[in-house]
Amino acid sequence: MQSVIELQKPVEIFSSASAVGKAEFEGPLGDCFDFHDESEKFGQKTWELAESELSHNVLALALNKAQLSHSDVSFLFSGDLQNQCVASSCGHVEEQIPFFGIYGACSTCTEGLLLASLTLNATKEQNIAACVTTSHNSAAERQFRTPIEYGGQRTPTAQWTATAGGAFLLRCGTRAPHIVRVMPGVMVDGGISDPNNMGAAMAPSAAASIVSYLRLTHTRPADYDAIVTGDLGSEGSELLSILLKTQSVDISEKHLDCGKLIYDPANADCHAGGSGCGCSASLLSAFFLKKMGAGEYRRILFLSTGALMSPSSVQQGKSILGVAPVIEIVRGEN
């Protein structure tokens, strides 16, 4: 049975970092990210290694900002889109941090923050956990779609896997923006099997999670300054709003979607928006946590949405499952 977990000890995100590729840097929030690489190779020879390097670099930067080193971190929750989550393992092998490789497709960022929060609550008070998630457009194209140089047209509902990464450092505390409640997501099968319409595949899970969360916490959308979904894109966001309306929930005034924010909607080639585990991770660090730091947001719901599938499952006609874990983040107290 699904439940909202009230954290005995709130978990603060006391440092974070973000990095992106070219298209994201050229997007409307390009200036917010900590660094970017036009070549998207991050100094490496292959796209897969580039993502590992990106994963490594964002964590190093988050640690650097907090003047900590890898040895200060007790747990690392890291995930990406590559097969066997290999970008994360290759990127962090030298750091010698106890490692959890996680996979929740585009929901990985929230999943990692949720698991890190629970782990910190269950272990020594002074422990530090890190959460890093990345995605790389070229690595994802190769794995899930077609060769990068292949010439094809994509449908308007297709989404663009972001080349992006976000790293977060967490510990028990309330001075920085902190996670107070979490809710693991339940997988939802909306019966959508079109990999070019991920937004539609994920929207039912986002709707289910939002409805459950509001019901279980006895809160209303008005109690939050923003309800942030991961990467439903423009199509998925519309569907979410329709699905919520059938349950008499209206979040239209509070809803923001990372997939819609990361690219300029006037740019036709991003189609329905961004996706990938790095999309919501980079924006949480570069945009939402900054807004909370500046006092603009007091309390937000953050739910990255994951589309659970593989190229084989899609080719075998299985529908794409959605999952949307939720974390509630409150502004820091200083």
Partner: peptide
């Protein structure tokens, strides 16, 4: 839902 998605999906 499938019908809704199909109906809504923007055509090329």
């Amino acid at each position: 839902y499938q019908a809704l998605v199909k109906r809504r999906a923007a055509r090329s």
